[in-house]
Design a protein around this nucleic acid. Structure first.
Length: 169
DNA sequence: CAAGAGATCATCT
DNA sequence: GATGATCTCTTGA
């Protein structure tokens, strides 16, 4: 949280701060793809952490996730919103929401299965600054998971308090 | 300003 | 054959 997501396209470098995320945690989380067992699509979530998991929803929107759990424990973090710092061009048309950021960063499922810690694919993470001011994290319920039974009210959505790029409050 | 519907397809049953 | 980890536009008050 608060780290930088870097995207390199050709010679252009785009830098963005991660300001909103959701956690999908474990085989029992009904909101997670992994809750129905291991399938070809979600098998990445059961693998090594640090792997990018991209997937298409509603037929047209790509979601950017990063696998977090240890091997064989299905868990991932959905990147829901970023604040683009380097390029106003991209910043302007982009409002909030997980599908917007993948569109703005030209992320598609070609990134599926690639490690996030290697720069050569043009997408990687960098640490945030130390001692950030006004850096408070709020946690709330996740969005769009009303079907998830007792897991729908888990407070596994996190965002930076007061940041204007967060999708909803 | 709030609420609702449509778009559109990979994946799973 | 059903169904979404969503977004945008349209409608109505």
């Amino acid at each position: 949280m608060g780290c930088f997501l870097i995207r390199k396209i050709g010679q252009e470098i785009y830098k963005a701060r991660i300001v909103e995320i959701e956690a999908y945690h474990g085989p029992l989380d009904l909101a997670s793809h992994a809750s129905r067992g291991r399938t070809p699509r979600n098998s990445l979530m059961f693998g090594e952490p640090g792997i990018i998991y991209v997937y298409l929803t509603y037929g047209l929107h790509y979601m950017l996730n990063i696998v977090t759990g240890e091997k064989d424990f299905p868990a991932a973090v959905l990147i829901r919103a970023i604040e683009v710092i380097s390029k106003d061009k991209i910043n302007k048309p982009m409002r909030s929401g997980p599908a917007k950021l993948t569109k703005a960063f030209f992320i598609n499922k070609d990134f599926n299965g690639l490690p996030i810690y290697i720069k050569k694919h043009g997408l990687w993470l960098e640490d945030r600054e130390k001692n950030l001011k006004n850096f408070k994290i709020v946690k709330t319920k996740r969005i769009g998971v009303d079907y998830a039974g007792k897991f729908k009210d888990k407070k596994w959505r996190f965002y930076i308090k007061g940041n204007g790029f967060v999708s909803k409050v």
